[in-house]
């Protein structure tokens, strides 16, 4: 972490707990830069997270109020805190399994209510902390510790899901697109209503090594190659498109 961001880090916190090659450090940095560029008051920031690697991005590292909750329930806890104290800027930072699988019901209902919550979903397409089991976001055919022959099921398109449920700011970026990601985070923070940013974050430890991307840079290269904008996607053949991940803003 660069020195400039140090004031946002809780006293006593030394290193992050993330594995080498994990994308969550880049995401952490991007969130703090967005907060810094908007000159946000950390005393009015509440960071809520669930269970999993991404839930450790704010807790204990961020120097605001942090609420590290139960698996899947971050949005429900956040809803209570925000409703009772609307002066808080409430940001929910958690993983794909936490927010969209065990917490899927809370996700669609929070989006439907359009309550002013800023949701950052770190999507590594796998259950990282528990040992690399298949997730609701694992692409079809990819391997995990519970799908040795490849995932037989389709993944969620999280952005389409929350947009359909009523979220009013929706974007997807990869940690390989940090500048665009910071801009999106700033928009989400300024937006009044339910905002959702899906952030693709590589997990070489659990996802990469099972899917022929053992080395961190291979996962970064893969994201760089696959992430394209909506404009770039236009005119691509279906087969070509099926390998790509479309990034950008989808709502409003």
């Amino acid at each position: 972490m660069v020195r400039a961001m140090e004031k946002y880090i809780r006293t006593g916190v030394k290193a992050t707990p993330f594995c080498p090659g994990c994308g969550h450090g880049i995401l952490m940095n991007s969130i703090l830069r967005a907060l810094d560029e908007l000159n946000m008051d950390m005393k009015k920031m509440l960071f809520v997270s669930g269970i999993g690697c991404a839930a450790w991005i704010p807790s204990p590292h961020f120097n605001g109020d942090t609420l590290h909750t139960l698996h899947g329930r971050a949005l429900a806890f956040a809803t209570g805190a925000k409703l009772y104290n609307p002066d808080l800027c409430v940001m929910v930072i958690s993983g794909d399994g936490d927010l969209s699988s065990i917490g899927g019901n809370h996700l669609i209902h929070a989006a439907r209510r359009n309550l002013d919550l800023k949701v950052v979903c770190a999507n590594n397409m796998i259950y990282g902390m528990t040992g690399g089991q298949v997730a609701s976001t694992t692409p079809k055919g990819f391997k995990s510790s519970t799908t040795g022959e490849g995932n037989p099921h389709r993944p969620f398109d999280l952005c389409k899901l929350v947009a359909a449920a009523g979220a009013t700011y929706v974007a997807r970026y990869s940690v390989t697109q940090p500048l665009a990601l910071i801009q999106a985070l700033k928009k989400a923070i300024r937006h009044v209503g339910f905002s959702f940013i899906e952030v693709l974050s590589p997990c070489p430890t659990q996802f990469g090594r099972r899917n022929l991307m053992d080395r961190p840079e291979e996962m970064i290269q893969d994201l760089l190659r696959r992430c394209i904008s909506e404009e770039e996607a236009e005119g691509l053949a279906e087969k070509e498109l099926s390998e790509k991940i479309i990034t950008g803003e989808f709502e409003p």
Binding site: L67, T79, G80, L83, N85, H109
Partner: peptide, 26 residues
């Protein structure tokens, strides 16, 4: 005060814990 009907009982109790830390008797 604040009233909300949540999507299920897990959300209900989770919301009151969140509100309690925001200062509410919930």
């Amino acid at each position: 005060g604040i009233f909300i009907q949540m999507e299920d009982e897990i959300a209900s109790i989770s919301a009151i814990i969140g509100a309690s830390w925001a200062g509410a008797k919930a």
